[in-house]
Amino acid sequence: MKTISLCMIVKDEEEVLERCLRPVRPFVEEIIIADTGSKDSTKVIAAGYADQVYSFPWNDDFAAARNFAFSKASMDYCMWLDADDVMTQENLEKLKIWKNQEDRADVVMMKYLTGVDEKGRPSLSYYRERLLKNHSGFWWKGKVHEAIPLAGTIQYTDMEVLHQKVKKGDPDRNLRIYENMRKEGGLQEPREWFYYGRELYDHQNYSRALEVLHHFQEMPGAWLENKIESCLQAAACQEALGNETEAMGELVRSFLWSAPRAEICCEIGRLWMKQKQWKNAAAWYQQALRDTRSLQSGAFIREDCRGFLPAIQLCVCYDHMGSRKRAYGYHCLAKKFRPDSEWVLYNDRYFSDTN
Results as ranks from 00 to 15, higher is better:
L17H: 02
R66F: 11
K99L: 07
M219W: 02
I9W: 00
V16L: 02
Y201T: 13
L333P: 01
W257M: 07
L345R: 15
R22H: 01
E160Q: 09
L213D: 01
Y178V: 05
E211D: 08
P190V: 13
R290G: 11
Y318L: 10
M110W: 08
G185M: 02
E30R: 10
G115V: 15
G197E: 04
C315N: 09
L175F: 04
V344R: 12
A50C: 03
L210N: 06
H203C: 08
S341Q: 04
G242T: 07
V24C: 07
K335V: 07
E29D: 15
Q313N: 15
I32M: 03
E184D: 12
V53T: 08
L95A: 11
K274I: 13
D291S: 07
I154Q: 08
A34Y: 04
Y328I: 02
G115M: 12
Y156T: 14
E18W: 06
E30K: 06
G120F: 06
H320N: 10
V252T: 06
Y206R: 07
L241W: 06
P26V: 01
R19K: 00
E184S: 11
A299Y: 07
H163A: 05
F351C: 14
M8N: 10
G120W: 04
T88K: 05
C305V: 13
K94G: 11
D84K: 01
L175T: 05
K143S: 05
N280G: 10
W139E: 04
E18C: 06
K99W: 03
T157H: 09
E303R: 09
L150P: 00
R173F: 12
A50W: 11
V108I: 13
R104I: 12
A235H: 04
Y328Q: 07
E218P: 00
K143G: 12
L241D: 01
K72S: 13
N91R: 04
R130W: 14
L21A: 04
A63Y: 12
K111E: 14
K227C: 04
A47T: 04
Q52S: 08
L213V: 00
G307N: 01
H215N: 00
D170F: 02
A222F: 08
H331A: 14
D202V: 13
T42C: 03
V144E: 11
E179R: 15
A311M: 12
D348I: 06
E93R: 15
H163L: 03
Y346D: 15
R326G: 10
L256M: 07
A105P: 15
C265P: 02
H215D: 08
T157P: 14
E267V: 15
E129V: 12
A262F: 08
Y346W: 14
L345C: 10
F70C: 09
D51L: 13
I31V: 08
D304V: 15
N347A: 15
T36E: 04
L124Q: 10
L92P: 08
C78P: 01
H163S: 07
D348K: 05
E189V: 03
D353P: 06
E179C: 14
L21M: 07
T292L: 05
K72N: 09
R176W: 09
N355Q: 11
T36M: 04
E263M: 03
N91T: 03
N134F: 12
G322A: 13
N243S: 00
E160G: 10
Q188M: 12
E229H: 14
L309K: 15
T292E: 05
R191T: 13
L132Q: 07
E184A: 15
